[in-house]
């Protein structure tokens, strides 16, 4: 479910938790890499998908 675009409505805790879980999943999948390439792009994409 997408977040409301009304900027007066605060971001819900559920939405924040979802972004957090997806972010940690990305980092975990790249933990073996000395330089976790692409992590910022993927996190940015997650936030775009969750808040639009």
């Amino acid at each position: 479910m997408n977040e409301s675009t009304d900027e007066n409505v605060p971001l819900s805790d559920e939405k924040i938790t979802t972004i957090q879980e997806r972010t940690l999943k990305i980092e975990k999948s790249k933990l073996h890499m000395t330089i976790p390439q692409g992590a910022i792009n993927e996190i940015e994409q997650v936030i775009r998908e969750e808040i639009n």
């Binding site: 675009t5 971001l11 939405k15 972004i19 808040i51 639009n52």
Partner: peptide, 21 residues
Amino acid sequence: RQETKLAKRRQEGAKRVQSTL
């Protein structure tokens, strides 16, 4: 502008998760 509002909202989302972690 709607796009500016959305970008600011996404920035806020990133910062909130950052702060929790």
